[in-house]
């Protein structure tokens, strides 16, 4: 094997190696979209409870991914979760947009849904979405349901000696 052939082969190897890295980053990892995302703007939303929302979760409007959750922290004054979301520039939302935390499927991942309102003025970078609806926590739903069941059971059996403590199974 002469030197030139080795040079050519090694050059070829490195070239296809770099090409593979680019393929993974661009075609598979969607680096180009990520760049567009960087050119977007950021909004703040405050939720009472975010459930299992994680950074990098999608932000969807009418089911279309329009951005991602950037950062989540607890507001020390209001004890609310302060969520920072990043939206792409091509998607502008009215000021009275409602942000809700949804769960895909019954136990699936959580995402932020944006429901556009009718305001003519659009939200600007670093502004806050005022209307927010917290995550529906399945545990809360279940305990509420149990509480109701227990209460209705207790009122039904009121004639019997008070063998049921209404608050027994429920801790707020």
């Amino acid at each position: 094997m002469n030197k030139r052939a080795i040079d050519i082969w090694v050059g070829f190897f490195v070239a296809i190696g770099v090409a593979a890295l680019f393929f993974l980053a661009l075609k598979v990892g969607n680096l180009l979209n990520f760049k567009e995302e960087r050119n977007g703007y950021e909004l703040m939303v405050k939720f009472d409870n975010i459930g299992n929302l994680k950074p990098r979760a999608p932000v969807k409007s009418a089911g279309v991914v329009v951005g991602r959750v950037e950062k989540i922290r607890l507001d020390p004054q209001t004890f609310q979760a302060s969520v920072r979301i990043h939206l792409e520039n091509q998607y502008q939302f009215p000021r009275d947009t409602i942000a809700t935390i949804f769960t895909s499927g019954l136990l699936g991942e959580q995402f932020v849904g944006l429901e556009a309102g009718g305001d003519t003025e659009m939200l600007k970078d670093e502004q806050e979405i005022k209307k927010a609806q917290s995550a529906i926590q399945i545990e809360k739903l279940i305990s509420q349901f149990m509480f109701n069941q227990a209460q209705s059971g207790a009122s039904a059996g009121a004639g019997n000696a008070g063998n049921t403590n209404p608050s027994a199974g429920v801790k707020p």
């Binding site: 890295l21 993974l24 980053a25 075609k27 598979v28 990892g29 969607n30 990520f34 991914v65």
Partner: peptide, 19 residues
């Protein structure tokens, strides 16, 4: 096939960590 892949795979998080 490609669309779902691109929506789910993050270049920094998945690709870079693999590299």
């Amino acid at each position: 096939f490609w669309g779902q892949m691109q929506a789910a795979v993050d270049w920094r998080y998945d690709v870079m960590n693999g590299v």
